[in-house]
Design a protein around this nucleic acid. Sequence first.
DNA 1: GTCATCATGTAAGCCGTTACATGATTGC
DNA 2: GCAATCATGTAACGGCTTACATGATGAC
Lengths: 206, 206
Amino acid sequence: MAVLGLLVEGDLHGYELKKRLADLLGPWSSVSFGSLYPALSRLERNGLVASVPESTESPDVAETPMSGSLGAELAAYRRQRTRRRGTGGGRRARKVYAITDAGRAELERQLLEESGDERGFAVRVAFCRLLRPDQRLDVFTRRRDALRARLAERDGERRGDVYRRSLLEFQDDRLRRELDWVEQLIRSVHDDPQAPEPLTSGGSPS
Amino acid sequence: MAVLGLLVEGDLHGYELKKRLADLLGPWSSVSFGSLYPALSRLERNGLVASVPESTESPDVAETPMSGSLGAELAAYRRQRTRRRGTGGGRRARKVYAITDAGRAELERQLLEESGDERGFAVRVAFCRLLRPDQRLDVFTRRRDALRARLAERDGERRGDVYRRSLLEFQDDRLRRELDWVEQLIRSVHDDPQAPEPLTSGGSPS
DNA sequence: GTCATCATGTAAGCCGTTACATGATTGC
DNA sequence: GCAATCATGTAACGGCTTACATGATGAC
């Protein structure tokens, strides 16, 4: 999901993708090369991404003109490597991947996937600008309900030694704070339903 | 680690272990039978646990007399099954596991393991009453330092759209709150260094 | 010269999930 | 009779981690 999301912002090769994943997910929960490259192969086999030839003409990868603030970020990446460009020979060949229409559809499916659980909610939020406001609300609402259910389950008890009780309290607090956050996200969608950044290249989705 | 920790509190069979794991870790991050039973086999092969015959004499599993508050918890579990006990025949044979001395050593090793990272810090806290106060401090301090380092890394930037910025802020807040909690744990050890519940059966550890 | 960075991959091993198989007992 | 709970396992599949292999470039 994260890979597909990043590729919506522009074509990228594996190495760069890894850096941006670390940027997005934190260097800790990030994938290793040993899992990223096979994952990209899988995605390619399934037609969700396609490897495009690194054209000598293009200024560099990832040059899709984006809405506002993302531009600065990309410019920074570009600058880092614009120095030693122009020689077609040099550096080991990079394999640049682009998301396909099937990939965009799959990304949308995954972003909307039923799952109030922890798995990838952060990633969903990170890319929810690609969804319509009502879809965003769906995602947020499911998470909110899951958090509420979880909080309701954790009633009373508080047994165990000092440390275990402290842990339970901390986890409760964490749950409540996430719930607050999600509720704030929901309000923000209601107050200002920003138009989605277009996900599919052509027409409007479904 | 969690399995070994639970077995310190008393002998248990797989099914009960699963329930207590769900209790401890939350039903979400808990293991399935398909991984628990193989895991127990592995632990047994490695001599960290041993399967003990379910003696018809013993009131039930997990009857180690514990310090204070744990007693009530265990009594509750006992009551639930004391109803239909006494018939040696009946129910499918349960395989009851007990932790060995090697298992206790391994548990201590894992609780003290160098790793400021997320992995199992919650479980370490849940069982840190088994450690000496100075060992507890080690564990907490490592986590504190890791959290500080992580917070220091996340300076400024805050790029991306509204949702991504909101996510980053939330994650920052979460990190800071965990840091606060860990610092509180450290202070609590300083203020009141409670004696450890004995981990090894015989003499004092190392 | 050697180290860090860029860049892509393969192979072994481990382990978790899911689904399946089995079988007794209790409650409706 | 049927479902749920208790209780233990096996088998297939998938996928992540780690380590290894390769090779260019630029900085010190």
